[in-house]
Write a protein that binds this DNA or RNA. Structure first.
Lengths: 124, 124
DNA sequence: TAGAAATATTGACACATCCGCATATGCGGA
DNA sequence: TCCGCATATGCGGATGTGTCAATATTTCTA
């Protein structure tokens, strides 16, 4: 038995950190892309036209804020929305809300094109 | 007739601005207090122990980010959660989420005490 | 074990942001 | 119209943040 009320354990500071992470256009767009599923840094770089260090930095920031998580497979780091985010959390509500924004949808379209090109290359 | 998809009109930049506003502990606590209803700057100052200019600044920031709105009545400025926030919006979800955090609930308790004291003073 | 590819980190710069004092403004009452 | 209260704003200093180039690290492969 713990406290008697309040279901969530997250403190105010962690929420501040999360919102700070959300308070940047590039990071919102990255989150939007990750709605699509697991992506590696180079996908994000190319779709959003970011220099490598910038992409990597933002992903580290998002990871630090518990919004995304990453796993290395071989040379690649694959990032995705943090798998520990519960289905009924504000975090998820926010991400789904973002996915509805036109700018994010446009990015999503670019991502689809990018992934298709990538697939074709590895096939031919 | 406007666009064919996407119900909301808010652009990415406005959302960035909103999240920036949420990325500060003091502002989150102010929003928490405003869950209680309309408050004037001095209430917020006293409950959160903030210097006047700081309180006023944060309120201006929140107003600018469309999270709160204010109206002057006499010498006092009364702030409240922006009345144009729809009932099913992310903004409201976020504010309700905040209201569940222990730190915010503690502030709320302090506010209640503060308001009681204020009432007693004007009665006696 | 050397080298190449993918990613992370560091360093420097510009710029935004927070804070609180001091001051300005808006408003009501004398 | 002058004063005082509630609030807003200008300003300077300290700190935080985003960006990108350069460099370090990790991992695979030869």
């Amino acid at each position: 038995m713990h406290e008697l009320s309040s279901s969530q354990e997250t403190g105010l500071q962690e929420n501040v950190q999360m919102f700070k992470a959300l308070g940047d256009e590039t990071r919102l767009r990255i989150l939007g892309l990750l709605t699509h599923g697991e992506l590696c840094v180079c996908d994000i770089m190319e779709v959003l036209k970011l220099p490598q260090s910038t992409a990597s930095r933002h992903l580290a920031y998002l990871k630090n804020s518990k919004l995304v998580c990453g796993a290395r497979r071989g040379k690649w780091m694959y990032y995705q929305l943090d798998t520990s985010i519960p289905g009924d959390s504000v975090q998820l509500e926010i991400v789904q809300y973002l996915a509805g924004l036109v700018e994010i949808q446009a990015d999503h379209q670019k991502l689809v094109c990018h992934l298709e090109k990538k697939d074709k290359q590895s096939c031919s």
